[in-house]
Design a protein around this nucleic acid. Structure first.
Length: 555
RNA sequence: AGCGAGGUAGGGUAGUCUGGAGUGCCCGCCGGGCUCAUAACCCGGAGAUCGGUGGUUCAAAUCCACCCCUCGCUACCA
């Protein structure tokens, strides 16, 4: 019935969270959550899919953060990695493997790819002059050199941008520059040579790749990429003068490390290597579809640089099939924060409400095509009205009716005709998913609940079924009505799994389903376990609301 | 400043590629119904100069031009 090619292998990835801090809800809904939801759908549909993600551990911010805390960067990054992994699991994410970029496997993958790029002639040397702090004995990235803004005279402008007037800056433009780390002014501009990937040489092949694939990309990713390509790509540096990272395996560059973006995108492969020996069947499989989710700030890395790396190294890895870049979930009137304790991050969100509530509400508002505001009022509405009122209440009232009727589920009759609308919505649900319109798919589920509730209202089953069973002579009618209603409960349980896995499992357990598949919907109803009936969802309590309000902006 | 995305009832969105009556959805609001269910559910209604101006067209939310506002990127944040 569902036109799914189960022979096809699928790799699903989400942009790797940077292991400096616990992601906030906006980060979560911008890549990992939709990726996880899509992965769960792919399992429902019967795809041979894997879901790969992990922590991005290198780069200057982590090195400096560790320095400040007086620990080794690796120790710091591994600690945060464990915290992120734990919180994502608590949010119901079912990664095939959640790894990290600072691993031996990823180092092997990076070296293999770098050596191939080098051999194939796509590695350039690039000379540049960079600020160097003679006290800290290190080169400073644009962010970590400060001084007076040449445009507005603001003291404390950073080398990349002035926070006061918004002007974009170069470090050399700063007046009276000083080191952003030790605040001394012993700055020297020194020459350094780094390695770069020759995206300019790879441009024709990247262009060809983009043209062939952009039909299945999100609009922002496709258009931005075309615009970049029209302007022409430049060589992009892949090494840095710092200690934390994978050292460059080339004579003359061994005191440098690979640039964090380079080993982060390759991390998708490196992390898969840590997962299983089967990794190659996926990454080098001819028919593998690579589907990648990310926030809009990550587009160019996935649409040009990453394909450029794969094309230039020519090692037989699959290129991205679908690139879906989410807009931002903004938090008007709410504090979304990455730093602990200050705002609503993934950790304290779970202390207020269970993961199902966040997953469902966030996907209901998922910023698929434009920035979307997340407010407490919206969250409360979605939980109380949609999840609790429509879906949870429907499940509960039908199962209660069934229990009161004393009828066995196996003797219920499903009236095909009354199920037509529901079947159409289920088909739309699958189509929405295939088109990555997951928010729409979730709305089909809500529409199914609407149909269920309407069926109950119009057929008035309480006239046939009392607390002590079905009224004399109404058994046939009761079996018909309950057949449709109960099968909708099962359907909602299955279709809800990607969005609210806990509640879904709770419902499906009654039907004896542990690994839901869309094909379960075609099976006749079996006996149900109606032990301990209770609400599937509940409304947010006053206590929960109070806790949420703590995260409202004071202004 | 350049490039990309977005601006649609009180709020949130779909529709825009491929022009055809302001067409749909969720919340809120108003009115009615129901009593199986969690003060839950169902039905009906009101509410929109489709960011602005100008243009093309028999016809524009949709196509073109210019302008305003929000977000992102601009190659050394990741």
């Amino acid at each position: 019935m569902y036109m799914v090619d189960t022979e096809k292998r699928v790799i699903i990835t989400a942009a790797l969270p940077y292991s400096e801090a616990i992601p906030h809800l906006g980060n979560f809904v911008g890549s990992i959550l939709p990726a996880d939801v899509f992965y769960k759908y792919s399992k429902l549909a019967g795809y041979d899919s894997i879901f790969i993600c992990g922590s991005d551990q290198h780069g200057t911010p982590i090195e400096i953060r560790a320095l400040k805390e007086g620990v080794e960067p690796k120790e710091f990054a591994d600690k945060v990695h464990k915290e992120i992994k734990h919180i994502l699991e608590r949010f119901g994410c079912s990664f095939t493997y959640y790894g990290k970029t600072d691993s031996d496997s990823n180092k092997r993958a990076v070296y293999e790819i770098f050596n191939a790029l080098y051999k194939n002639g796509f590695i350039n040397k690039v000379d540049s002059v960079m600020p160097y702090c003679n006290i800290d004995k290190r080169f400073l990235t644009d962010r970590y050199i400060e001084g007076v803004c040449p445009y507005c005279g603001f003291e404390g402008a950073r080398g990349d941008q002035c926070d006061n007037c918004g002007h974009l800056l170069n470090p050399s433009e700063l007046i009276r520059p000083y080191c952003g780390l030790c605040h001394n002014n012993e700055i020297e501009f020194k020459k350094t040579t780094n390695l770069a990937i020759a995206l300019d040489k790879l441009q024709p092949e990247i262009l060809e790749f983009v043209k062939g694939r952009m039909g299945s990309w999100s609009k922002n990713a496709a258009n931005k990429t075309i615009s970049y390509l029209e302007q022409g790509l430049e060589a992009r540096e892949i090494t840095r003068d710092m200690k934390w990272g994978f050292e460059v395996p080339l004579e003359g560059y061994k005191d440098k490390v690979f640039y964090v973006w380079f080993d982060a995108v390759i991390g998708y492969i490196g992390i898969s290597m840590d997962w299983s020996d089967q990794w190659e069947q996926y990454w080098k499989g001819k028919d593998t579809k690579l589907i990648q989710f990310m926030g809009k700030d990550n587009i160019e890395f996935h649409t040009m640089m990453w394909p450029g790396i794969l094309i230039g190294s020519d090692l037989g890895y699959v290129l991205p099939h679908t690139i879906y870049a989410y807009e931002y979930l903004t938090a008007k009137g709410l504090k979304f924060s990455k730093s602990r304790g200050v705002g609503l991050n993934m950790g304290n969100a779970l202390e207020i409400a269970g993961s199902d509530y966040w997953r469902f509400a966030l996907m209901y508002l998922a910023p698929e095509s434009s920035d979307t505001d997340f407010t407490i009022a919206l969250f409360v509405d979605i939980v109380n009205k949609i999840m609790n009122g429509k879906i949870g209440n429907y499940v509960h009232r039908v199962l209660t009716l069934l229990k009161n009727s004393g009828l066995k589920a196996s003797e219920l009759v499903e009236d095909e005709k009354s199920m037509d609308k529901v079947a159409v919505l289920t088909r739309k649900y699958a189509e929405d998913f295939e088109a990555l319109k997951m928010r729409e798919a979730l709305r089909e589920l809500v529409a199914i609940a609407d149909i269920g509730n309407e069926m109950i209202s119009s057929s008035k089953p309480w006239e046939l079924i009392g607390k002590d069973g079905v009224k004399q002579g109404s058994e046939g009618r009761a079996k018909e009505l309950l057949g449709g209603m109960v099968s909708i409960v099962r359907r909602m349980g299955v279709l809800m799994w990607p969005f609210a896995p806990d509640a879904s499992s709770k419902i499906l357990k009654r039907f004896g389903i542990s690994e839901p598949r869309l094909s379960d919907l075609e099976k006749p109803l079996k006996e149900l376990n109606l032990e301990g009936l209770g609400p599937v969802f509940s409304k947010l309590s006053d206590k929960q609301l109070k806790e949420l309000e703590r995260f409202e902006e004071d202004s």
